[in-house]
């Protein structure tokens, strides 16, 4: 028991590693603040293309979505970070993360938004158009607000996954929470920093998990 506490819940180590863990935590928040909007923007564009574009565009959008949902995000990230420089294109760690998340989470958000747009009855579109609203206005004022409300649980749950996924940025050496915890563990030969990082993720995301769980139950029970 003593050994266990020493190796996993060592207070001295926590106080020692605190400054770099805290920086990692802030970095994780910054990464999330970048990747979530990128994914959302990519998702809206994909969803619009795959629901209202010409037939060929719709097919291409669906294929694009399937490809980037089939490739694990870490594979994409490694490809962008370690592969592209061979062709003389060096996007750097930040660039690789931004691009990888745009492609990966954009596709997931795209599927969510597509389901939302398709859940809005056609009559709504037709009624709005017949009152003189343009296509863009109809989408913005009539279709999207209802679409977002209908898929709110999936949107929140997907956002939770995106924040968790920022931990793979540690693989390309961005100093986010997991990376910093690994550094601290290497420096101290003690697993406490990783336990502390896990605890930080849990405290940050637990409220979101509770929220998602409530929203999902309501959605499934309401069918």
């Amino acid at each position: 028991m003593e050994d266990f506490l020493f190796a996993f819940l060592n207070w001295d180590i926590v106080t020692q590693a605190w400054p770099i863990l805290w920086r990692g935590f802030l970095y994780t928040l910054a990464l999330s603040a970048m990747t979530v909007p990128l994914g959302l923007a990519g998702g809206v564009v994909l969803a619009l293309l795959s629901t209202s574009g010409p037939r060929l565009v719709r097919l291409l959008a669906a294929g694009w979505t399937d490809v980037f949902r089939a490739i694990p995000p870490l594979v994409l990230l490694v490809f962008l970070y370690a592969g592209l420089p061979f062709a003389g294109i060096d996007v750097g760690a930040w660039g690789a993360v931004a691009l990888g998340f745009l492609l990966n989470t954009g596709s997931y958000y795209g599927e969510v938004f597509r389901a939302g747009i398709e859940s809005v009855p056609r009559g709504q579109m037709e009624a709005a158009r017949s009152t003189g609203l343009s296509r863009g206005q109809t989408l913005r004022h009539v279709v999207l607000p209802q679409a977002v409300r209908n898929v709110l649980p999936d949107l929140v749950s997907n956002t939770l996954e995106v924040v968790k996924l920022t931990s793979i940025a540690s693989v390309v050496a961005l100093p986010e929470l997991l990376f910093q915890a690994r550094q601290a563990q290497n420096a101290t030969y003690n697993a406490t920093p990783i336990v502390a990082a896990a605890l930080a993720y849990f405290l940050l995301l637990w409220p979101v998990v509770r929220l998602v769980s409530r929203l999902e139950n309501r959605a499934l029970a309401g069918r």
Partner: peptide, 24 residues
């Protein structure tokens, strides 16, 4: 269930792989 929904999978993997040896 909440714990394993809130933790990133990579964090759990790293914890098990690099952490457990510290406990022998």
């Amino acid at each position: 269930v909440d714990v394993f929904r809130a933790l990133p999978p990579l964090v759990i993997i790293v914890l098990l792989f690099f952490g457990l040896p510290a406990a022998g």
